[in-house]
Design a protein around this nucleic acid. Structure first.
Lengths: 168, 168
DNA sequence: TATTGTTATACTCTATAACTATA
DNA sequence: TATAGTTATAGAGTATAACAATA
């Protein structure tokens, strides 16, 4: 069932090129960014994502475990592991949700917010140097507009048949 | 020395958006692709990259360890580990280089080539469904053209001050 | 019964440092 | 001395399955 009924029909060279550049740029960028986060705040990229989501995106500074897992494409156990690390470091707190006793609400602490602002300037610097220096403002806008539909498409299609539940 | 003399001056929202989409798309794509490679050929993404580089890019099917490490942004020991796995699986062979006794030449085997062609159709399918279905041919071309300079810029700048040697 | 989250466990990957051998 | 590669080792991250508790 892994072979499709239609002939393989390889991607054309433009598509292959786009695939490779995309993956290489993202890989190199992640590498650079992880090093900065490690140096400036002893954070992994995923941990930064979690903190940023709580501290920058969420108006309340809180989210349920499940929502965090959905946003970061994580296994439940993986998120539990990371949330445990963050909590042990005093960067977030966990408490049973008010409305649903099964849920756990994760909240960023003052120390967490402080760490974000400590790490953010360096982070922005890396982005500026590595990613944006070769891109004009228009380029950046176009790039964003091109990738946004892809992201939405990927989020919609549930290819992760692993566990069972995923979609909210 | 981690704070720059110039004011933090945060990225504008367009730049931040571009950064996040780029990372999310690449992350989701890598996730999907890794699952396919695992299912169809029991390969990690890095192992696939190594085999593809030897089998598809190199005309001779051989490369030195160092050149492979440069191409895949790996630590030397990491490459040794992966090359060891591939060799144990019979997908590559290793032999001291002819001209330089210090070097090791890695060569893809028939089994390695066979595995690539076994895995490639499914790989292409995933790319088509996940990445390219929301992109026109023009979109794809533009995306590629936008990212190519970024890749070149990142390759040139040696931010990995870790080990010591890196640039060829 | 379905969902939320945790735990135990095992495995893969990566990086650092020490080491050998050749240039 | 500098480079190519390996080894030992240690640590971080991830996933699976079994589990407990609530809806």
């Amino acid at each position: 069932m892994s072979t499709s009924p239609t002939p393989p029909s390889p991607l054309d060279s433009v598509q292959l090129g786009a695939y490779f550049v995309l993956m290489e740029v993202a890989g190199l960028l992640r590498h650079a960014v992880e090093q900065q986060l490690r140096d400036d705040g002893d954070l992994s990229y995923v941990q930064f994502q979690l903190l940023a989501r709580l501290g920058l995106d969420s108006p309340t500074g809180s989210e349920r475990m499940t929502d965090l897992a959905d946003g970061v494409v994580y296994s439940r156990s993986g998120l539990t592991y990371q949330a445990g690390l963050l909590e042990k470091a005093g960067l977030v707190s966990r408490a049973p949700s008010a409305d649903d006793e099964r849920s756990v609400t994760v909240t960023i602490t003052d120390a967490g917010r402080s760490l974000i602002s400590q790490v953010l300037p360096g982070h922005v610097e890396v982005l500026r140097q590595q990613l944006f220096s070769p891109l004009s403002r228009t380029d950046t806008q176009v790039l964003s507009d091109l990738l946004a539909p892809v992201r939405d498409h990927m989020r919609a299609a549930p290819p992760r048949s692993a566990g069972s539940r995923r979609r909210r």
